[in-house]
Design a protein around this nucleic acid. Structure first.
Lengths: 351, 351
DNA sequence: ACGTTCCTGTAGATCGTTCTACGAATGGGA
DNA sequence: TCCCATTCGTAGAACGATCTACAGGAACGT
């Protein structure tokens, strides 16, 4: 955009007038449609350049599509979600689709509606708390791909990590190390029956099952916080001060794990006293100052894949696709470095 | 949105038909305009509810405004930027404006154009690399508030931290601790003369000035990376392996500082060997596992303030506003914990 | 010379809102 | 009874693109 027109915005009519052709002709050139001579092409492109003309998406939206894809993530600053966005962006790079994000402020549905109101051609969302039938209704009007939902609607596609398997990996690891007083930090939402269908719900019940199966039902201790560093830190602090004394904590995600680590460190303890494991394997987990055991989910790949599915949906696919990705445990020092073991030994992976 | 209309999307005409009134009447009710009886109000609202009608933003955009504010940040996953978005969202919460984000993929201008094409009513952007006159041209067509630009256009408002002052705080601190071989990790962009006007440019030249003023011109060592953990880690690693042996590193932001810390730790060193300071004072900097000395800029407040300025601009203000925020140094263990000093002493702040 | 075909370009309807200008009641005062 | 205000509601023209249907002309074959 060179220094543009002085007053308002140039329209397709301005371009047509400047090039001495009809409005329809300009539209043809813009869309690369059939029936345009080289001479006209030339003149129109010149006029577009000169007037610094850019078609309005809103006007286009009135007929047909916006070539815009909406992405909704519940929280910025979460590395995993950022990776998802990155992946989706990479997938869309070579297409004519532009990506926009709707930030979430408490109500997930409002963000989805905001995208819908703006007539995006499709939506990629991480909104595990939204009711299935509400989502199905939305998906009837605009293609939707959901990340992290365990329900299987035939109206929207889903991509989800196998949270039960991931949780089992973590719990097996901790229990194998001899831990008995294992606590869990969960994300508490306003919704009731989300236990079986949300990632945090499944991680929580997976924890409880694993404890029960190991004969440790009596040791089950769930700390209710949120999957953000600060909230988790606060909740963990309260729990510790209230007498909770676990030897290991399974935090529902890495941000929460960071909060747990903070709470522990503030009380003069370290991961040799209380082991900590997280979930997501955000980049920071591998940082030498953190060395957090975590469950790897490839956010970038998930984002990429979800964008690809969405494009298929926009292209007309009607049959639902549901993909489940296998998680991978990455063991680091935050759990069970035995005394004397070197701190910088290579990471180990279990699938 | 209850389970909605079966086929396409309900329009204002559908609502009018259902309520047995004219299209104009429905529009009046929607906008809360004058000249509506209670009875009609009632009927129309009923029909809207029943049909699950939501006005299309695109159609509204054809006449007047979209009540949408666009935000552009260069990079997700950066805590500081996330705070900015959070602040802007908080400021807009009670207004009728909705916020959308455009993610950036290499070209900052493309993201800004994407927002412009979608006819947002105003733009908040962090795009220090975009040329001033290009930005001025954009700002002539849509209100723009820029964060982190040191130029003062009278077409767009700016909010910026005093990077020169912040840099001086860091450098004074490091030099006062007796460091002489202080290196700097900068962000390298494709643009030439950005030295004097971008935050990273000013931080870099501030570093060079401070070194020169201290008679250490010969010790100046600038490592060129990017302000992301991974890129900074890589660049620092190369530099260290290439023989660079500083006693302190001033990283241009906190993400970069994390990368520096990683590179150092990987080589068997710690912050007692090489002090590290960052910039932004992201939440993570205060984490007990990191304890990074940094320069605090209140991202949330900046975001809040920029949204407020934007609303003023949209409301018609023409005179430019340029605000400069004073930074504050937060000293933590990553710089100069003297041997024997306890690790958990309270943080100190210098302004 | 005439008809057919192909290639370019145009007219004009259309999408879903907003909003001005106007018409139809109603009620009150004279 | 008539007139004028006031109130409530409607008709219809925008807004800026897309895209179908069509018109005009050139090229070609007979």
């Amino acid at each position: 955009m060179p220094v543009g027109t002085p007053g308002g915005r140039a329209t397709i009519d301005d371009v047509a007038a400047a090039a001495g052709v009809s409005r329809a002709a300009v539209s043809k050139v813009l869309r690369g449609a059939y029936g345009v001579s080289d001479a006209m092409q030339e003149r129109v492109k010149g006029a577009i350049e000169e007037l610094d003309y850019r078609p309005r998406v809103s006007a286009r939206a009135m007929r047909g599509s916006t070539f815009t894809v909406g992405v909704m993530i519940p929280h910025f600053g979460n590395q995993f979600f950022a990776d998802v966005v990155d992946g989706a962006m990479a997938e869309l790079r070579e297409t004519s689709y532009q990506l926009i994000l709707a930030p979430v402020d408490a109500d997930h549905r409002r963000a989805l509606e905001a995208l819908y109101d703006r007539q995006v051609d499709g939506i990629v969302a991480i909104s595990p708390l939204v009711a299935p039938d509400w989502l199905a209704a939305l998906a009837r009007k605009v293609p939707v791909v959901e990340l992290g939902r365990h329900d299987r609607s035939d109206r929207y596609d889903t991509i989800v990590g196998d949270d039960a398997a991931g949780t089992a990996l973590v719990m097996d690891h901790l229990l194998a190390r001899g831990h008995r007083r294992v606590a869990h930090l969960t994300h508490i939402d306003g919704v009731r029956q989300s236990l079986g269908s949300t990632p945090h719900g499944i991680r929580r019940s997976g924890y409880e099952q694993a404890m029960t199966a190991a004969g440790l039902a009596g040791e089950i201790a769930v700390v209710e916080g949120r999957f953000e560093e600060e909230a988790a830190w606060r909740a963990m602090g309260v729990a510790l001060d209230g007498g909770l004394a676990p030897t290991a904590v399974f935090a529902g995600n890495d941000d929460a794990a960071l909060g747990v680590l903070r709470a522990i460190a503030e009380r003069g303890l370290s991961t040799t006293d209380i082991s900590v494991a997280g979930y997501d394997d955000a980049r920071l987990a591998s940082h030498p100052a953190i060395r957090l055991t975590s469950v790897n989910q490839d956010g970038r790949e998930m984002g990429r894949r979800s964008a690809a599915l969405l494009i298929e949906r926009i292209g007309g696919r009607a049959e639902p696709v549901h993909e489940v990705l296998a998680p991978r445990l990455v063991v680091r020092d935050s759990t069970g470095r035995s005394a004397g073991e070197p701190a910088d030994r290579p990471e180990r992976t279990e699938t």
